[in-house]
């Protein structure tokens, strides 16, 4: 592989965490991030990613996304592409085993980038119009709220308390090291180095 930076097209949910990574690793990438709210509109996310990835041609690129839209498999399989190994951002941050345990226990997750706009997410993006209606839905489907603390910024204790009070659910904080993101990106780079340039990655880099 050449020394040219690898394209990194990622979800904005990780933009801040990316800025905290080792500078040498960051220099390996020419990074751009899309609005994380596209997660709520999978078809629209696919429409947003398609022209960006098409423009990249066969240039090596890492797709920092989970299985967040139906076309992600095709995006990953295109020549020069490699996707990070995760179903979604929370699984990447926490690791597969911890993520599945918490999901099985009824966790509903909040990533740091979403927390300042949690009311916007529920009222407008999910369409509940009021937090009371959202709370009814959430209490039916979750037993606890889990804040994924990636270390940046520190957990906003007062806002988390307000969140728990409005939804009527306990709030837990799960510490997730930024090393998880670093590891996922290094694995993706290694996968790109390992494979012939014209070959895509039908499945995410393990």
């Amino acid at each position: 592989m050449s020394d040219d930076p690898v394209l990194l097209i990622g979800c904005g949910i990780f933009a801040r965490e990316f800025s905290l990574l080792d500078a040498a690793l960051r220099r390996r990438f020419e990074a751009s991030f899309l609005d994380s709210m596209l997660h709520m509109r999978p078809a629209l996310l696919g429409e947003a990613l398609a022209p960006i990835l098409a423009e990249a041609g066969e240039r090596p690129r890492v797709i920092l996304y989970g299985d967040c839209c139906p076309a992600m498999a095709e995006f990953s399989a295109a020549p020069g592409a490699c996707r990070t190994f995760c179903t979604n951002c929370v699984e990447l941050a926490l690791g597969g085993a911890r993520y599945r345990r918490l999901r099985g226990e009824g966790a509903f997750f909040f990533m740091p980038e979403w927390l300042p706009r949690w009311e916007e997410v529920f009222e407008r993006e999910l369409g509940f119009l009021s937090i009371d209606r959202a709370a009814e839905f959430l209490r039916e489907s979750a037993s606890r709220l889990v804040y994924v603390d990636t270390g940046s910024p520190p957990p906003p204790e007062a806002e988390l308390a307000r969140l728990g009070e409005r939804f009527g659910l306990p709030v837990l904080i799960e510490r997730a090291e930024v090393a998880a993101l670093e590891g996922a990106l290094r694995k993706a780079l290694a996968e790109l180095d390992r494979r012939p340039l014209r070959e895509g990655c039908p499945e995410p880099a393990p």
Partner: peptide, 11 residues
């Protein structure tokens, strides 16, 4: 199924 109504409306 076409993403044109919200989760809340489906709920």
């Amino acid at each position: 199924s076409l993403d044109s109504i919200s989760l809340a409306q489906a709920y």
